Computed example of a mutant assay.
Amino acid sequence: MANAPLAVRPVTTKTDTRDFIELAYRLNRGDPNWVPPLRSEVAGTINPKKNGWFSHAVARLFLAEREGRVVGRISAHIDKLALEMPAEQGFGPGTGFWGLFEAEDAGTARALINAAEDWLRSKGMTRAVGPISLSIWEEPGLLIKGHDHAPTVMMGHHRPEYRGWIEAAGYEPAKQLVTYELDITQEFPPIVQRIVAMGEKSDRIRIRTVDKSRFEQEAATILGILNDAWSDNWGFVPLTQPEIDDVGKKLKPIVFEDLIRIAELDGEPVAFMITLPDLNEAIAPLNGNLFPFGWAKLLWWLRKPQVRTMRVPLMGVVKRLQSSRMASQLAFMMIEYIRRAAVSEYGASRGEIGWILDDNQGMVAIADAIESRINRVYQIYAKQL
């Protein structure tokens, strides 16, 4: 069957879309560490009416078939905001992307990547970056270390053989993203405790929880800090209001006030830290389905999650304070306050921080100071077209 003719074609019908979604469940079914995402969430990600990312991006989905059987999938996409970024920050003019990649074998992988590249060339792109699914803020990179344990909420998990197939297609590493894990039942080292204690004595510093009844205003505050704090990072593309609105709807059920902190300096919000209970622990047994009983189980879990792992997907300090002692102090204070709440209120014992750019010296230093270790590595590749 592997020698049978292979056809790659665009997704054009509802049946195609269903097949595009379902393929991942079939190909990853044998991996005990793959967490089946909710099908409704996957459908929303690729639906321009439900994903605010499409307000500044276009995408084409492809299926690979052999003898009428779907054996692979890929997306090719162009982010108009990424095109406007400086080339030295990783993207910029002429840069297109591909992602949502799944394939049964090396031949299928090559054909899919070729199809994505051809589409990008037809749109005037001169460079391809991937895998990024679909936004840099969603699931960027290919997992190359950490296949031996399940991903946390909003993190990707990929078959080990994909690395060789992508590199055989001429792709070279462009950037690595890492996550750190740590035992949060243990107090942080004495030096970190002293820094936190000093901050608590300062009249200039206030570390507050978010107010969920003011969700939109709090989201706007965090968005403002985020777009300033991350603006010089490799791969940065500003988050837009439509994206924040859609992400807010998706994440609001797992937003808990004591797990998200905003740091104020002299009354001005200057830093934030978002922590999410690992939703993957609740959805893993559902096999991607909310019905007939998954919805009730998930609602019960969401009342007051008791989890093993908490994930910190985002934190940031305004640019003017970065590389200062104040930035580190605010970060340590937020981390410590959230650590206490995670353990005492949610029964958590493990934390995961990331993703983090592997050369982000400030965040790497913080991760090292709280004695965390790298547990997952994601590789982003690039190729001239």
Rank of each mutant, 00 (worst) to 15 (best):
V11F: 14
T12D: 11
T13Y: 07
T15A: 14
A24N: 05
P32C: 05
W34C: 03
W34N: 02
P36Y: 03
P37G: 00
R39I: 13
S40Y: 12
I46S: 02
A57C: 10
A59H: 05
L63W: 12
G68F: 02
G68T: 00
G72K: 13
G72E: 12
P86A: 02
F91M: 09
P93Y: 04
G96L: 05
G99E: 03
I113K: 00
S122Q: 10
M125F: 09
V129F: 06
I136D: 10
W137E: 14
E139Q: 14
I144N: 07
G146A: 09
G146D: 09
A150K: 14
M154L: 14
M155E: 12
G156D: 08
E161W: 10
E161H: 10
W165Q: 06
I166S: 08
Y171P: 00
A174Q: 15
K175T: 12
T185M: 09
T185S: 05
V192I: 15
Q193P: 00
A197R: 15
E200G: 06
E216D: 14
Q217G: 15
I225V: 03
D228G: 12
W234D: 04
G235V: 05
G235K: 03
F236W: 07
T240D: 07
Q241T: 12
G248D: 10
K249N: 13
P253L: 09
L259T: 02
E264I: 01
G267F: 00
P269R: 01
A271E: 04
M273A: 15
D278A: 03
E281N: 00
A282G: 07
A284M: 13
G294S: 03
G294A: 04
W295E: 11
V312E: 07
Q329P: 08
M334W: 09
I335E: 10
E336R: 12
R339L: 05
R340M: 12
V343S: 06
E345S: 11
Y346N: 08
Y346V: 09
E352D: 11
I366S: 12
A367R: 00
R373L: 05
